[in-house]
Amino acid sequence: MSDKKPKNRRDFIFTATAAAGAVGVGAAVWPLVDQMNPDASVKALASTEVDISSVKPGQSITVVWRGKPVFIKRRTKEEIDKARSVSLDQLKHPEKDEDRVKNPEWLVMLGICTHLGCVPLSDKGEYDGWFCPCHGSHYDTSGRIRKGPAPINMEIPEYVFLNESTIKIG
């Protein structure tokens, strides 16, 4: 089975075949991978509209968006002032309160501790904001991390005020 012929053509046909085969295998694998991504019915639920007309100052409600809790807090004047009076160099993850809200009265954020994904308790902790019971992260009235293992502030989802009483999240 010795093959002493010039190798060019042989190599070309072998390489072309192997390359074409590899492309096909790759194309066949993609559907098998992509089927685990969110499907069309899940994506359709990607935005939620919330009626906030019944929330009184100081109260907060929790709504579900993409299977995750979203805190919608109507903050009192004091709480807003408290959040705005903190100087940025005291913060582990410096962010101005003004950048975290669209309307100072309403704080809308993902109610998930950025440490390992637990849901923090409201009106608890050393900074009167939120406290995560899992590993003791303290958040202030703007949802910023102040103390504990969490690396960053609680996340702000995309949202818009459709009118005075409705927020659309997502």
Partner: peptide, 21 residues
């Protein structure tokens, strides 16, 4: 179309390989 092209390529590969016997 892809399968037909690949079949043709594999066919020539096969011919080439089997030309040794």
């Amino acid at each position: 179309v892809y399968l037909i092209i690949l079949s043709i390529l594999v066919y020539f590969t096969m011919k080439k390989i089997w030309s040794r016997v």
